[in-house]
Design a protein around this nucleic acid. Structure first.
Length: 283
DNA sequence: ACCCGTGTTCGCTG
DNA sequence: TCAGCGAACACGGG
């Protein structure tokens, strides 16, 4: 379930599990070829012997730096796509379902990158020079790490006729905001998702920035309290634990609006994606 | 059997 | 020239 909060959890997990550890071996299954770059699974051997030094998150991207040899570095650019997960298992245990890449560490732990639909990415980055990647360089400031600059938002949206819900999914504008957080942020801000992006006032955009950040932080807090961040379990990343839906409106078509309960949440489709909102309190 | 899906990219169009 | 649109990717889950 990867938007900014889920990827942030993955980053924290990887730090706790791997920083300081050395890579023994790396393996990928045949279908992983689709998400790998270089595409040949054996190219992953370049990671053998490297030591995890740093894990950063920019939007939905995980940027992992490992040290190798004397002063050398190698990077992993990981994107979870729709169904990607980083999981931890004992090396001797069976791999999880849909495991695509496994990294055996020097402490008996194996990190598995699992991805059912293979929309994710797993790319080796020579010298860990992530800034040299066009897609990474193009990302805007990260909302959680850097905050949201309302004036920049206003400038960037000044000529955009797209509906605001569609516009804020642009990762060069608000990296990490996805389909869930977009609906949630607009609900918290009381803004109709169908409005043209350019029609929003500065005050409305300030409310939207606040709504998005509140929703992101609330979602993170919910993961933590439910144990879905894996912090409470020693080995198993909590995969199957049922956690309460932390969304106010996403996936809640037909349910009463959580604000006034006198109208129901509706589902519409914008740019081929579901949007949830309340007609009464979002203008 | 049918519809839906938390993401991104690509080719086409006006 | 480029913003915007729709298909495509792959594989379940309900």
């Amino acid at each position: 379930m990867p938007e900014l909060p889920e990827v942030e959890v993955a980053a924290r997990n990887l730090r706790r599990w791997a920083i300081g550890r050395r890579v023994r071996t790396v393996q990928a299954d045949a279908r992983a070829r689709r998400i790998l770059r270089p595409a040949a699974p054996r190219a992953l051997a370049a990671l053998a012997g490297a030591r995890f030094e740093d894990v950063r998150r920019r939007g939905k991207n995980l940027l992992v730096t490992l040290t190798k040899g004397r002063g050398g570095h190698i990077g992993i650019w990981s994107h979870l796509g729709m169904t990607g997960k980083w999981l931890r298992r004992r090396t001797r245990d069976a791999p999880p379902r849909f495991a695509r890449v496994r990294i055996d560490l020097d402490d008996g732990v194996t990190l598995h990158y699992a991805d059912m639909r293979l929309f994710g990415r797993f790319r080796l980055v020579p010298d860990a020079r992530f800034e040299s990647l066009a897609d990474i360089a193009a990302l805007g400031p990260d909302p959680l790490n850097d905050g949201i600059d309302v004036d920049r938002l206003k400038d960037r949206l000044a000529r955009t006729r797209l509906p605001i819900k569609v516009a804020i999914l642009d990762q060069t504008l608000l990296p990490g905001v996805g389909n869930i957080q977009a609906s949630e942020g607009l609900f918290r801000a009381g803004i109709d998702p169908r409005r043209a992006a350019k029609s929003l006032s500065r005050a409305e955009l300030a409310r939207l920035a606040r709504g998005l950040l509140d929703s992101i932080r609330y979602t993170l807090k919910t993961f933590k309290q439910s144990g879905a961040d894996g912090a409470g379990s020693d080995i198993e990343y909590v995969e199957e634990r049922r956690i309460a839906n932390p969304s106010l409106v996403y996936g809640r078509a037909g349910e009463p609006c959580p604000r006034h309960k006198r109208d129901t949440i509706v589902r519409i489709v914008q740019a081929q994606r579901a949007t949830f909102f309340c007609r009464k309190c979002q203008r």
